[in-house]
Computed example of a mutant assay.
Amino acid sequence: MLSAVRARWPHLDRLPDGGFVVAASRTRRYEDADQVQVQVFDALGCEASSFSVGDAIEHLLVDEAGHVWVGHFDENPAGIRRWSPTGHIYWTSDGESIPGLFDCYALNVSGTTAWACTYTDFPLVEIRPDRPVRVWANRVRGAKAVAVHGERVAFYSGYGEELDWLTRGELTEASVEPTDVDLLTLPDGHLPGRRRVVGRGSRIYVQAEPFTPWGVFDLSS
């Protein structure tokens, strides 16, 4: 039980110590944009800290070090940032060579590494806090989730008829080269329809309406 959760339409992830991070995806337009937006709860469900990361959160994921990765959609130019659980910025995409970063379409966290696919150019981006950003050109447009395993990559979703496409590819020196495309279906064979998706490591998690069970696609299997 988390006490006094204030977020509307929240993003949620678990911290390595058993606590949780809860964040409102939008700041309330009639309030100060710097309002407290993120709540960090300890393992007993009590609020341990709170801070703001800015409006328009598209993705929120916690890495194994307990840092919070936030990807924004296009109503906030902040792009992608990595925060401590007390509200200190450890990494920001400002000044990084990420082409066309107007919207973080897909975000994946594995260990302490983040992978992203960003609008408008949709490159695959590898972000390691202690190394320069790596960028691969990518022909898949509009993916909402990405999974990575070694030199293999999978992109899920896209525009129009590509909504349920799963495109697999391999990393070369400078680009992602697609190898095959399938429809991603639920275990019962149906297409997901309205769904939430989360990418973490080699896995893409899909929660279809009525948003109770999760299905898992694992690129490593």
Rank of each mutant, 00 (worst) to 15 (best):
Arg82Lys: 14
Phe20Ile: 09
Pro99Arg: 02
Glu96Met: 07
Glu31Val: 03
Glu162Arg: 06
Ile57Cys: 08
Val148Asp: 02
Asn138Trp: 01
Gln39Ser: 00
Ser25Trp: 08
Gly71Thr: 15
Val109Ser: 03
Ala23Phe: 04
Leu44Asp: 13
Ala147Met: 05
Arg139Glu: 09
Cys46Ser: 13
Glu151Gly: 03
Trp69Glu: 12
Thr112Asn: 02
His88Asn: 15
Asp55Thr: 03
Phe102Asp: 14
Glu47Thr: 13
Val109Phe: 02
Ser93Glu: 09
Glu151Trp: 06
Ser93Ala: 15
Ala106Ile: 07
Val22Tyr: 04
Phe73Tyr: 11
Phe51Thr: 08
Ser49Leu: 12
Arg134Gln: 08
Trp69Leu: 10
Val22Ile: 09
Gly142Phe: 03
Ile80Arg: 11
Ala137His: 07
Gly160His: 12
Ser84Gly: 14
Ala78Gln: 13
Asp121Gln: 10
Gln39Asp: 04
Thr112Val: 05
Glu126Arg: 14
Val70Thr: 10
His149Pro: 07
Ser93His: 09
Phe155Arg: 00
Gly160Phe: 05
Asp130Ser: 10
Gly79Tyr: 13
Glu31Phe: 05
Trp136Gln: 05
Val36Ala: 10
Tyr156Pro: 06
Glu162Thr: 06
Leu101Gly: 04
Leu60Asp: 13
Tyr30Gln: 02
Asp94Arg: 10
Cys104Glu: 11
Val135Arg: 02
Arg28Gly: 05
Leu107Ile: 11
